[in-house]
Simulated scan of single mutants.
Amino acid sequence: MLINADFTRVATSLPKQQQWVKSPQKGVERIMLDRVGAEKARATSFVRYAPQSDFPHHCHPGGEEIFVLAGTFSADDKHYPAGWYLRNPPASGHRPYSDEGAMIFVKLWQMPADETRYVAIDTNKASNWQRQGSRSVCQLFASDYEHVSLQRLDAGELLFTEAISGGAEIMVLAGELYADGETFSRYSWIRLPTETPLEMVSGPSGATVYIKTGHLAQVIGLVS
Rank of each mutant, 00 (worst) to 15 (best):
H79E: 11
G101T: 10
L108C: 01
S127H: 08
S136H: 11
A155Q: 02
L140F: 11
S134N: 09
G83C: 07
H147R: 15
N88A: 15
R117E: 14
D122Y: 10
S136L: 11
D154C: 03
V106P: 06
S98Y: 02
H94R: 13
R152D: 07
W109H: 13
A142Q: 08
Q132C: 06
P112Q: 08
A142R: 11
S127Y: 04
Q132E: 10
W84I: 04
D122V: 06
D144T: 13
W129F: 07
N128K: 07
N124V: 09
A126N: 01
H147M: 09
R135F: 08
R152K: 14
L153R: 06
H94F: 04
A155S: 15
A91S: 02
P96M: 03
W129I: 06
H79S: 13
E100L: 04
Q139S: 04
W109D: 14
D114E: 12
Y145R: 10
R87Q: 04
V106D: 03
S127L: 06
G101H: 05
P81A: 10
R152W: 05
F105S: 12
Q139G: 01
P90R: 10
V119H: 05
G101D: 03
R131P: 03
K107Q: 10
Y97C: 05
D154F: 01
E146A: 12
A91H: 06
A102F: 03
S134K: 10
L108Q: 04
N128H: 14
N124H: 09
V148E: 06
L150N: 09
G133C: 06
L140E: 08
F105C: 09
S98D: 02
G93I: 05
D122T: 03
A155K: 08
H94V: 15
